[in-house]
Write a protein that binds this DNA or RNA. Structure first.
Length: 845
RNA sequence: GCCGGAGUGGCGGAAUGGCAGACGCACCAGACUCAAAAUCUGGCGAGGGCAACCUCGUGUGGGUUCGACUCCCACCUCCGGCACCA
């Protein structure tokens, strides 16, 4: 063996061990057996080309978990792949002319190299790349399966239009402030015919099954719950009052949804969304016609954000009336821009006395207001109110329901609607169907053909994949660039053979990422999308690791896909991820304004790993990243902190170097508690306490920061032992065992140095095959324990007592302690609390 | 407004209801050195005291308890999600 280098030679050993792991395929997993399986999954990245240390946290955490679990004897599956379709590559192509496939695959190669330089190991035999035909063929196949089941459908709807990326977006991809999640553009509304996945069919199941996800963070579950937005209420059909002139109407019912049917006797008007179907019909020939149509037209031009600015509500009277089925009252029918067509029925029963929005609208347009709920002391007076009363109370002026507490009235009044066949209880969700069409090139083509004779025809499975053509001009025009590719668009109809046209839109890239974790199990299988048996054996994923930014988007879509595949009987489980870990973002102060931001080029606060790895090595970057704070929380990157991690690894290296001869010779020695003196006995106890604590930290929620702190403490204790070649046999034995154990304990975090030192200590590589250290319970025993002495809860001293000391004698000793004497002198001892092994608290007065 | 999470030294952070501030960073002092770097040793919440020690201290105010960063109630601030969703 080569002589050990004095200076920690990270730049030599790191590439060496990376090559070793690669050659020996240490993370290549045979999935034929699922015994002791552990599926460790990291969200696969978009290959943007360069990773910064903020991205790195995800992979470093995942790699540490995978290494730890492997050493615990589990058969770990850690695959990696690429979410490789997406707009950045296409936008770059527009600017530079480089084909997205080329730039994407180049970026994949670069990022693979980066991951390797971080020491992150994967089973690359299972690599999936979503932009390659062997993957997107199956994305298309799954689309067809959803289509067959009616879960993929096309409809005309008001959709979110991103004017910068020139494409439509799903609701999930629009932020609360009305800007696009990706481009930051202000989203516009457009009426377009688009493809949707019917995720709303799964709303209740997606909500219910959140309860099963014990391994998920509460906040992610709560975010999904908010997003799904279930509310219980009632559907009530108001009758349209006939025209005065007796003219006919296409429909004579206006249904509405309400969660407050108890207030329906206070309903004084009704409001329709401007997009409500048939408004033109409704007002035809009335004096109000022109004004109403102008109002509708104007509302339609406003963006979602302009329309939904709270407070300002605009409306117009239609000239028509509806009849409240509870009291047969005729009330005016209005149109209001605050009513959403997408929620409920697009019609709202307005109860200004008990709804703040209706109150504002009624005041503005001088509409009548009527109380139908009274407060507890019956003191509500309309004249005194300056806002709606939305609290609970007693139903009034609502025969035959008057006098009921309103919460009790709700089910009774809904049942009344059902009995009389003008409505009944219903559940309403906020969740909308998932819009998946994108008017862009770099995505999986939607496998549908439009034939003038046969209509919409799915591409036959045998014809998959529908390949993306290469010769396409990328100019964004608001229509898919594929639409201008003649050879792509013009195809014979698969059914009748007549000339037909292909769908030219591509799928949202979130479709690709909704099923990749199934594909890892059979990535090279060209006969089917997913392998049912392998998936059933290896899923749900034991540990999923990724960013909180996907709390709703990807994680909801993937759950939906899993349930849909379950219904298709392609798999036999309904939730894909048993445990979810969302790591916090790494932030850094911007040099521009000194504020903390997520790392991004535009903020000028990006730390790239290359320079750090060159200067300190990958193990230092890994150790610091894991030590920076609790991994689920945000953390601020601090360059000085990196230095600290480096110092620790260098110290560990030096300690082994300094004592290399002693360590080699001590290999044959065994720690024996019977012959240990106190100093090495203390270290031996500390060693075992550390193993216990570190294991607990990792088994819990991956508390790497405290685990690493514990290793540092143990190292401090090693140094305190002051070992030298003349030390006793037991000192040398304990020293050897402790150093060797430190190397094993640190190996998930700093694997390169651990491998090198492991070998230096005369062990055969790889350390990944080493067993995780076990606690020697006997070593934890203390002959003497320190007892803290308190008087009235304040620390007044400490004593050492034998481990077996009984409460009475501890109490006696405590009371005899001079410090304690001082504080209880002249006072009455009222109570003495003895917590064995911990403290004595003496209450005096 | 509703839902979720968090407030601890100069900084990142640690503490099964039982010694608040582990570990690291920064800083200060000392050793080594011609010197520097590196390394090693020690100190490092605030206030008081020559000192032994004492008082205060985990966002604020109450409460439970022998004992509260930890549990309960009310509130403040910050972060995230939802929000004209009827």
């Amino acid at each position: 063996m080569e002589d050990m280098k004095e200076k920690y030679p990270f730049s030599e050993i790191e590439p060496k061990w990376q090559a070793y792991w690669d050659e020996h395929g240490l993370f290549k997993t045979d999935v034929a057996s699922a015994e002791n399986k552990y599926y460790c999954l990291m969200m696969f990245p978009y290959p943007s080309g360069t990773l910064h240390v903020g991205h790195g946290r995800n992979y470093i955490i995942g790699d540490a978990v995978a290494r730890y679990k492997k050493m615990r004897g589990l058969r770990v599956l850690t695959p990696m792949g690429w979410d490789a379709f997406g707009l950045p590559a296409e936008n770059a192509a527009i600017k530079t002319g480089t084909h997205p496939r080329e730039s994407t695959l180049n970026n994949v190669a670069v990022m693979k190299q980066q991951l390797s330089a971080w020491g992150c190991c994967y089973d690359w035999d299972r690599e999936v790349t979503s932009c390659l035909p062997d993957y997107y063929k199956w994305t298309q196949w799954l689309f067809l399966k959803l289509y067959e089941r009616g879960l993929a459908y096309k409809k005309e709807a008001a959709v979110n239009w991103d004017p910068v990326d020139q494409t439509v977006l799903a609701n999930e991809q629009v932020l609360a402030d009305g800007t696009a999640e990706r481009s930051g553009a202000k989203v516009e509304r457009k009426m377009l015919s688009q493809w949707f996945f019917k995720i709303t069919d799964y709303a209740q199941r997606l909500l219910d099954d959140l309860d099963k996800l014990d391994g998920w963070p509460e906040r992610v579950k709560s975010m999904q719950e908010n997003w799904i937005g279930r509310s219980e209420g009632a559907r009530i059909n108001f009758r349209l009052a006939p025209r005065d002139n007796g003219g006919a109407d296409t429909s004579d019912v206006v249904p509405c949804f309400t969660t407050r049917v108890d207030t329906i006797y206070g309903c004084t008007y009704m409001v329709l969304a401007p997009e409500y179907p048939g408004i033109a019909e409704l007002v035809k020939g009335l004096p109000e016609e022109q004004d109403v149509l102008a109002f509708v037209e104007k509302a339609g031009r406003l963006s979602a954000i302009e329309r939904t600015t709270e407070g300002d509500k605009n409306g117009i009277f239609t000239g028509r009336y509806v009849i409240n089925p509870y009291n047969e009252e005729k009330i005016p029918l209005w149109i209001g821009d605050y009513v959403l067509m997408e929620y409920g029925t697009g019609a709202v029963m307005a109860v200004p006395a008990h709804d703040t929005r209706d109150w504002v609208f009624a005041k503005k347009y001088d509409l009548p207001i009527r109380l139908s709920i009274q407060n507890a002391d019956q003191s509500l007076q309309l004249e005194d109110m300056d806002d709606a009363y939305t609290e609970d109370g007693i139903v009034v002026d609502s025969p035959p329901f008057s006098g009921l507490p309103n919460r009790e009235a709700i089910p009774k009044m809904a049942a009344h609607a059902e009995e009389n066949e003008f409505g009944g209880p219903v559940i309403q969700f906020r969740l909308r169907d998932w819009l998946i069409s994108r008017q862009r090139y770099w995505g999986a083509p939607i496998p549908i053909i439009y034939c003038d004779v046969c209509g919409m025809v799915p591409v036959p499975e045998a014809d998959l994949p529908v390949l993306l053509p290469d010769d396409v001009e990328f100019k964004p025009s608001g229509e898919s660039p594929l639409k201008r590719a003649e050879s792509f668009v013009n195809v014979p109809c698969p059914t009748c053979g007549k000339p037909a046209r292909r769908e030219s839109d591509t799928m949202d890239t979130f479709v690709d990422s909704s099923w990749y974790f199934f594909r890892y199990l059979s990535a090279r299988d060209d006969t089917k999308a997913v392998d049912t048996t392998l998936c059933d054996n290896w899923l749900p994923v034991d540990q999923y690791i990724g960013g909180i930014e996907h709390a709703i988007l990807h994680l909801m879509y993937a759950r939906f896909f899993t349930k849909a595949l379950y219904d298709l009987e392609l798999i036999h489980f309904e939730e894909p991820f048993a445990h979810l870990f969302t790591q916090g973002m790494i932030t850094k102060r911007s040099e521009n304004d000194g504020q903390l931001y997520k790392m991004s080029k535009s903020k000028g606060n990006v730390v790239s790993p290359e320079e750090l790895i060159r200067e300190y090595g990958a193990d230092t970057v890994r150790l610091y990243t894991l030590f920076i704070g609790p991994p689920e929380k945000e953390a601020e990157w601090n360059d000085a902190g990196v230095e600290g991690a480096f110092r620790f690894l260098r110290r560990l290296w030096r300690r082994v170097y300094e004592h290399r001869d002693l360590l080699r010779d001590a290999k044959a020695l065994t720690p024996d508690m019977a012959t240990m003196e106190k100093p090495e006995r203390d270290l031996y106890r500390k060693l075992n306490e550390s193993i216990q604590r570190i294991t607990r930290d990792l088994e819990g929620d991956f508390h790497f920061n405290t685990a690493i702190a514990q290793i540092m403490e143990l190292m401090n204790a090693v140094d305190a032992l002051k070992v030298n070649p003349d030390s006793s046999e037991q000192v040398r034995a304990v020293f050897h065992e402790t150093v060797e154990t430190i190397v094993v304990l640190i190996s998930p975090f700093a694997p390169h140095i651990a491998e090198e030192l492991w070998q230096e200590l005369g062990r055969a590589p790889s350390i990944l095959n080493a067993e995780w250290p076990r606690v020697n319970e006997a070593a934890l025993y203390r002959e003497e324990v320190e007892i803290v002495l308190q008087v009235n809860g304040k620390l007044r001293g400490r004593i050492l007592v034998g481990a077996g000391a009984d409460q009475a004698s501890i109490e006696q000793e405590a009371l005899a302690d001079p410090q304690v004497q001082k504080w209880i002198e002249g006072k009455t001892v009222r109570k003495v609390i003895v917590v064995p092994g911990r403290l004595v608290n003496i209450a005096v007065s």
